[in-house]
């Protein structure tokens, strides 16, 4: 058996990684979040009928928007992955799916907290809520499906297929309030009527949407970098095992 060469990493660069555009995005997002909290809790007027509990809307809707965006990216990256077989797209899709599940969970939890004082119940199995639960389950399934495949390549292809097919639930979920009777309100931003929101409320909502989007982009890029690092470490381990044998 050949003796493996000792591996020593010698960095010729500075130890602390240099600042990148992501640092800039982080600080912009961090400041925007506190401005957003100020707008939501102190600046925007109290809603006349629902009272203060309506302020949860400025978290609920942006979280739902990010979940849709994340699942659209899973769909898109899934197609790229199946077309090119480049593992990079699978890393992107998996990272987006994880964040999509987190933001769907935030949407469900904020919805539940909002529903109790307004509708008198925490949860009802109506069209919107049921399809949201289904959406959450589909993408939890997406994250789990890879674990049951024999090889890493097969796992990533299975995942991509689930991500592409699973996206069908997103438009059904969005349109569910128009197609069926539901306790949930009709769409108010995209393809809906947002005139019942005052100018202050609209500004707060759009600021919150922008802040959540910036946070999502930051978290997505970091998660992708982490996933790529995991893959690189695995590759290095395999190389090392090959060298030792």
């Amino acid at each position: 058996m050949n003796e493996a060469k000792p591996i020593k990493a010698e960095s010729t660069r500075s130890i602390v990684p240099r600042l990148t555009w992501l640092d800039g995005l982080f600080w912009v997002t961090a400041i925007a979040i506190f401005v957003d909290l100020y707008l939501i809790f102190l600046w925007v007027p109290k809603e006349a009928i629902q009272g203060n509990v309506q302020r949860i809307f400025y978290f609920h809707l942006p979280a739902a928007w990010i979940a849709y965006l994340a699942f659209f990216l899973v769909f898109l990256f899934g197609i790229f992955h199946l077309k090119t077989r480049n593992p990079k797209w699978d890393h992107y899709a998996y990272s987006a799916a994880e964040l999509g599940v987190v933001f769907t969970s935030v949407t469900i939890v904020t919805g539940i907290i909002w529903a109790k004082p307004i509708f008198g119940v925490w949860w009802v199995w109506d069209a919107r809520l049921t399809t949201t639960a289904l959406l959450w389950l589909v993408y939890v399934g997406y994250l789990m499906v890879g674990a049951y495949a024999v090889s890493g390549d097969k796992a990533s292809r299975l995942r991509s297929a689930v991500g592409i097919l699973g996206f069908a639930v997103v438009p059904i979920n969005y349109l569910s309030v128009s197609l069926w009777d539901t306790v949930h309100i009709e769409p108010i931003v995209i393809g809906g009527d947002d005139t019942f929101l005052s100018a202050d409320m609209r500004l707060t909502l759009y600021f919150s949407l922008a802040t959540f989007t910036a946070l999502f982009v930051f978290l997505l890029v970091v998660r992708i970098m982490l996933r790529e690092s995991e893959a690189a470490v695995e590759e290095l381990d395999q190389e090392r095992e090959t060298a030792l044998s």
Partner: peptide, 9 residues
């Protein structure tokens, strides 16, 4: 931390 790990790799 991720940036540092990437540099190490």
């Amino acid at each position: 931390k991720v940036m540092r790990v990437r540099q190490d790799i």
